[in-house]
Design a protein around this nucleic acid. Structure first.
Lengths: 114, 114
DNA sequence: TCATTACATAGATGTTTATCTATGTTTACA
DNA sequence: TGTAAACATAGATAAACATCTATGTAATGA
């Protein structure tokens, strides 16, 4: 019957096409949590400020003012970035210096070569 | 006096170092909203599935099942990605086909060459 | 040892967001 | 024209999150 045949053709046109290697859930969650760490305007600016500082490192004490953040809020964002492994903490006396983890950053950039 | 001098030295060691071009707030917000669109495991998988499909395009009707999503939830995620300009909508009859916007994707990848 | 400074943690609050159910809209076709 | 299928939108809800104030911790220096 014609209708059935057309229907079959239509179904075929909408049928799942062969998927190449699609990202599985656990890896997708891992990537998402890494991206979430960066997907915030304040943290993007933080990374930018750190990287743009001389020696590519910045003292926390110099980050509150340019970004107009309270000290606990800054501390929170730096922790999020540190936990994600995107920046590294280096305590020197009373101050804490941060630098971008270039390895981790390169890892991320590869994601977008998909 | 020695204390004052030391204090000055210390301040200098913590003083703001010359910043190169740091990302300003409006641009940071733009980048963050783009990254937020991807920073979700479901949407990462969606992009992956679309790109891994033959012809690098996928019908919405084929995306609910492999990702175990309800139809409205799928529709929501596809809208988020579409609004961010990361995928493109192409309605063909009853079905809607999506493909990744490669231009936009390349733009993003440049972000990580920082 | 005490005061001060730099930073972290805890708890509270308002906003965003991922998901659901229910319903609306559009297209194909008999 | 009327029905069915594919998708979008609306509204509700619970979880996640950015920010704040208040307080704790650790290091410095007198």
């Amino acid at each position: 019957m014609k209708t059935l045949q057309l229907s079959l053709v239509d179904v075929e046109r909408c049928a799942p096409e062969g998927l190449a290697a699609a990202i599985e859930r656990p890896q997708a969650e891992q990537l998402a949590s890494l991206l979430k760490a960066i997907a915030d305007p304040t943290r993007i600016q933080l990374i930018s400020y750190i990287n743009a500082s001389s020696n590519a490192e910045a003292c926390a004490c110099n980050l509150t003012e340019p970004l107009a953040l309270s000290q606990p809020t800054l501390s929170h964002h730096l922790k999020v970035l540190t936990d994600a492994g995107l920046i590294e903490r280096d305590k020197r006396g009373t101050w804490v210096w941060y630098r971008v983890n270039q390895e981790r950053w390169k890892q991320l950039s590869k994601l977008f070569e998909l």
